[in-house]
């Protein structure tokens, strides 16, 4: 279903993701005062690693299954690596979530807003004032909202489901003209 649109946009998306990853990495190293997600520094995230290993690789025991429910209500299931931020998971796997991660994980927007179930939310690491500040500007803010760039995948999250909030424009019927094969 989401496959056709990914195919159509592969040239666009490939370049896009390449530049995103590179930038996230640079920011993580050089812009310490802007609170990049802690996972990158902890894990020594590298810009090329994600591509070389490939999203399909499943042999590693670091793999964690994560489900995203996008604005169309589609469930996007992927395998993430422990230590990746949820923003990186979306970017590295080209998941079909529009406008996700506009500031590329630098805590300067709220476009990677994700909603967790209550139990999971309570188990997540503490939330910083800076993250709360950006969440205050998020659409559809809930009591269990976090920014995807600030949440690292952990082993215990296997099977996690997170939801992308609906926003005003999504209340309307989603029509995808190029997405003819949608079933």
């Amino acid at each position: 279903m989401a496959h056709s649109i990914l195919g159509l946009l592969r040239p666009l998306r490939r370049g896009l993701n390449g530049s995103k990853i590179r930038l996230i990495f640079l920011c993580g190293v050089t812009e310490q005062h802007h609170s990049p997600a802690k996972c990158w520094s902890e894990r020594g995230f590298s810009s090329t690693q994600g591509f070389q290993d490939g999203p399909e690789e499943s042999s590693s025991k670091d793999q964690v299954t994560v489900h995203f429910i996008n604005r169309d209500g589609e469930r996007l299931t992927t395998t993430a690596k422990e230590g990746e931020s949820l923003l990186e998971v979306v970017v590295n796997h080209n998941l079909a979530i529009d406008g996700f991660g506009a500031c590329e994980g630098t805590l300067a927007c709220s476009t990677c807003h994700l909603i967790f179930d209550k139990d999971t939310f309570q188990k997540l690491d503490a939330i910083s004032d800076e993250e709360l500040d950006m969440l205050d500007l998020a659409y559809g803010l809930t009591d269990t909202s976090r920014l995807g760039c600030q949440v690292c995948v952990k082993k215990w999250m296997d099977g996690l489901t997170v939801r992308v909030p609906m926003d005003v424009s999504d209340m309307r019927k989603q029509l995808e003209v190029g997405k003819q094969s949608k079933q």
Binding site: L16, S19, K20, C27, H34, A102, C103, E104, A108, C109
Partner: peptide, 9 residues
């Protein structure tokens, strides 16, 4: 500069 990252997209 973080906000200007949107330029990459």
């Amino acid at each position: 500069p973080e906000v200007k990252n949107v330029i990459n997209t």
